[in-house]
Simulated assay, not measured.
Amino acid sequence: MSSAPKDGSRILVTVRPSEQGPAEVDVAYWSRADQFGIEGWRAGDSHPGQIVAYADPELKCWMPLPTANVEGDAGLPAPWAGEDAEELFGSGI
Score class of each variant (00 low, 15 high):
Trp62Ile: 02
Arg10Ile: 11
Ser2Glu: 13
Ile51Thr: 04
Pro79His: 02
Asp73Thr: 07
Glu19Val: 10
Glu86Asp: 14
Phe36Ala: 07
Leu76His: 09
Phe36Tyr: 14
Pro22Leu: 00
Asp7Cys: 00
Met63Ile: 07
Gly49Val: 00
Pro48Met: 05
Pro48Thr: 03
Asp84His: 09
Ser9Gly: 07
Gly90Ala: 06
Leu59Asp: 02
Leu65Ala: 05
Thr67Asn: 06
Tyr29Asn: 11
Glu86Gly: 13
Arg10Lys: 15
His47Asp: 07
Pro77Lys: 01
Glu83Ala: 14
Glu19Met: 05
Met1Phe: 09
Ala43Arg: 09
Lys6Leu: 02
Val52Trp: 08
Gly49Pro: 00
His47Met: 10
Ala4Ser: 09
Gln50Asn: 14
Thr67Ile: 13
Pro48Gln: 02
Ala81Gly: 12
Trp62Ser: 08
Val25Thr: 14
Asp26Tyr: 01
Ala68Ile: 15
Val52Met: 12
Ala33Gly: 08
Gln35Ala: 15
Gly44Trp: 00
Phe36Trp: 15
Glu39Ala: 15
Arg16Phe: 00
Ala28Asp: 00
Gly75Val: 03
Ala81Pro: 00
Pro64Gln: 07
Thr14Ala: 07
Asp34Trp: 07
Phe89Leu: 13
Lys60Ala: 14
Ile93Arg: 13
Arg16Ser: 12
Pro57Asp: 11
Asp45Lys: 08
Ala53Leu: 02
Trp30His: 12
Met63Gln: 13
Thr14Gln: 09
Gly44Arg: 01
Gly92Val: 01
Val27Phe: 11
Glu58Val: 05
Ala55Met: 09
Asp56Trp: 04
Gly82Gln: 04
Pro57Asn: 06
Gly72Glu: 03
Asp26Arg: 13
Arg16Thr: 06
Asp84Trp: 12
Asp34Met: 00
Ile38Lys: 15
Ala4Met: 09
Asp7Met: 03
Ile93Lys: 12
Trp62Val: 10
Asn69Val: 12
Gly75Ser: 06
Trp30Ile: 10
Ser9Tyr: 03
Glu39Cys: 06
Pro57Ala: 05
Ser3His: 09
Glu19Gln: 12
Val27Tyr: 06
Ser3Gln: 15
Met1Asn: 07
Ile51Asp: 01
Glu19Asn: 11
Pro66Tyr: 05
Phe89His: 06
Leu65Pro: 06
Gly37Tyr: 08
Ala85His: 10
